[in-house]
């Protein structure tokens, strides 16, 4: 590939490097210890799922932070919308009878 000399320097390309097709984006979830759940730790680009798993191991578990890795194409994630947060979650907020502290139990019953 030739790089004609430019005023900025012999190695600067005269036009932008043609946009290469990106490897797709994957979200990474790591279970750091048996018994714990997988936690989201970030994203990475990889050509396919196997590749994504290997990259995830290299990027997110350099210090043995993982016993299990999940990779999911970012496009597959369905998320609730922050703008709907109020309506979406509000019904739960006023149902205080879901909490144990709502109920009065006599002391002589002991622990319940």
């Amino acid at each position: 590939m030739s790089n004609p000399a430019t005023p900025e320097g012999a190695n600067a390309p005269t036009k932008a490097t043609p946009a290469l097709k990106d490897w797709p984006l994957w979200e990474v979830f790591v279970r750091s210890k048996q018994g714990l759940e997988h936690k989201h730790c970030g994203s990475l680009h990889a050509a396919d799922a196997e590749h994504a798993l290997q990259m995830a191991r290299d990027i997110y578990t350099r210090r043995q932070e993982g016993v299990s890795i999940w990779v999911v194409p970012s496009s597959a994630i369905v998320a609730s919308r922050p703008s709907d947060k109020g309506e979406f979650f509000e019904p739960a907020a006023d149902k205080i009878y879901r909490h144990p502290t709502f109920y009065e139990i006599p002391d002589e019953v002991g622990h319940m």
Partner: peptide, 17 residues
């Protein structure tokens, strides 16, 4: 720049694979 250009075949190869 050189690393990016020299590595193009790896990026393309991974997608082809």
């Amino acid at each position: 720049i050189k690393a990016h250009e020299d590595g193009a075949w790896v990026r393309e190869g991974a997608l082809a694979h």
